[in-house]
Amino acid sequence: MAHSSPSQPRPPKIPRVPVHGVLLLDKSVGWSSNDALIKAKRLLNALKAGHTGTLDPFATGLLPLCFGEATKFSQDLLEADKTYEAFVHLGIVTNTGDTEGEVLSTKPVDVSLAQIESALQQFRGEISQVPPMHSALKRDGKPLYEYARAGITLEREARKVTIHQLELLGYEAPFLRIRVMCSKGTYIRVLGEDIGALLGCGAHLNQLRRTGVGALTLEGSVTLDQFIAFEDSERAQALLPVDGLLTTFPAVMLTDVLTERFLHGQRLALGKEGIALPAESGRARVYQESNGRLLGTGLMQEFGILAPERLISTLSN
C-alpha cells in the first residue's frame, strides 16, 4: 500500500505593515481599479489601502491609490474634478458605449469641423446625463451592469454634471479626439454617445485616458509593470507623502504646545498666538513647526480660529 507523502508546511504569512502615502498609478488597459489596488497593496505588504474613484477596465491613466493615513483624505479625490482625453469613434453605436460592447448600429460619417464645434458647444457647462446601464451604480443592492448582462434595462434618472472644459484636440474621420475637464460623476462614455447622437451618426468611446484628478496629474506616475519590477525599497520611495493630497490647501504651522492641543481636538485661537494665518478661511493643512510633521487638516474660521478636521494618527509618524 502506497504511503502518501506528508503535506509540506505552508510558509508563514508575512505580517502586513503600516504604509502611508499615495501611489500615482498609470493604470493599463484590462486592469479593474480594484484588482490594481489589491496588487499594489500586496506588493507594498500594506495594512490599509483604498482607491479614489474607479476607472473602467478599458480605460487607462491616473488612478491615485491611498495607503494608511492617506485613506482619510481619499474622499477629497472622489469629489474632485477629473480630466480626460478620449477618442470618440463616430458612426458606430455599441450597447456599452465603448469598445467592449456589441455593435448596435452603423451609419456613414459626413460631418464638418464646424458641425463638430457647434455640437461640442452644447455640452459645455452644466448638462444632464443619464447614467449608462453598463455602470457600477447600484439599484436594490446590485450594480446596473449585472442587470444589463442579464438583458434587463432599467429606468435611470438624468443627473446634473458640469463640463468645465471640452476641447477638440483633433478630427480625422471617423475619430474625434477630445479633452474633458468635468465634475465627479460624469460619464465620458455617455458624453461621447451624446455627441454622436447630436451629430446624427451615433458614436462610442474608442479610447479613454484620465490625465488628472484634482491637482494630481500623471507626472511622476508609474505603471503596474514598473511597480512590480521595482525593488521593495524603490516601491516605498515611489509613494507621495500623505500631504501630496493636500497641496491645494494653505499650510498652518503650530508650535509644540499648540500641536498637543490640536491633536486633542481643541479649537485654537491662532490670532492671539502670533501664528501666520492663511489669507482666507476654509480648509488648511496643519503641521508641527519644529519637525515639519503633518498633523492633519483643519478649518480656518472667523477671528483666526482653527478647528481640527481630520487628524493623522500620531502612531504613523
Rank of each mutant, 00 (worst) to 15 (best):
S4G: 12
S5M: 12
P9Q: 08
P12K: 15
P12F: 15
P18V: 10
V19L: 07
G30C: 00
W31V: 00
K41C: 01
R42H: 11
L43E: 13
L44D: 03
A49Y: 08
D56L: 09
G61S: 08
G61W: 03
G61L: 15
P64F: 10
T71R: 14
L78M: 15
E79R: 15
E79T: 07
A80K: 09
D81A: 11
T83H: 04
Y84Q: 01
E85N: 03
I92L: 13
I92M: 13
T94M: 12
G97W: 03
D98L: 00
D98G: 07
E100P: 05
G101K: 06
T106V: 08
T106W: 07
K107M: 04
D110C: 10
D110T: 12
Q115I: 08
I116S: 04
S118H: 11
S118N: 11
A119N: 06
A119P: 15
Q121S: 14
Q122W: 11
E126R: 12
I127Y: 06
S128D: 08
Q129V: 14
S135Y: 02
K138A: 02
G141F: 05
E146C: 06
A148N: 07
A148F: 00
A148Q: 04
R149E: 01
A150R: 04
A150I: 03
G151Q: 14
I152G: 10
E155V: 05
E155M: 01
R156K: 14
E157Q: 15
E157L: 12
V161F: 03
V161Q: 13
I163Q: 10
L168N: 11
Y171I: 05
A173Y: 03
F175R: 08
M181R: 12
I188S: 14
R189W: 09
E193N: 14
D194I: 09
A197M: 15
L199I: 11
C201Y: 09
H204S: 01
L208I: 10
R209N: 11
R210W: 02
R210A: 03
V213P: 01
A215R: 14
L216R: 03
L216W: 00
T217L: 07
L218R: 09
G220Y: 02
Q226M: 03
F227H: 10
A236T: 04
A238I: 02
A238S: 12
V242E: 05
L246G: 01
T247M: 12
M253V: 03
T255N: 08
D256E: 08
D256H: 12
E260W: 02
F262E: 06
F262A: 09
L263D: 08
Q266D: 07
A269I: 02
G271C: 00
K272T: 11
E273V: 01
I275D: 05
E280T: 01
R285P: 02
Q288D: 06
E289L: 03
E289H: 08
N291M: 09
R293V: 12
L294P: 02
T297R: 04
Q301M: 09
E302C: 06
G304K: 04
I305M: 07
L306S: 00
P308I: 07
R310W: 00
L311A: 09
L311V: 07
I312H: 04
T314S: 10
T314P: 10
L315W: 14
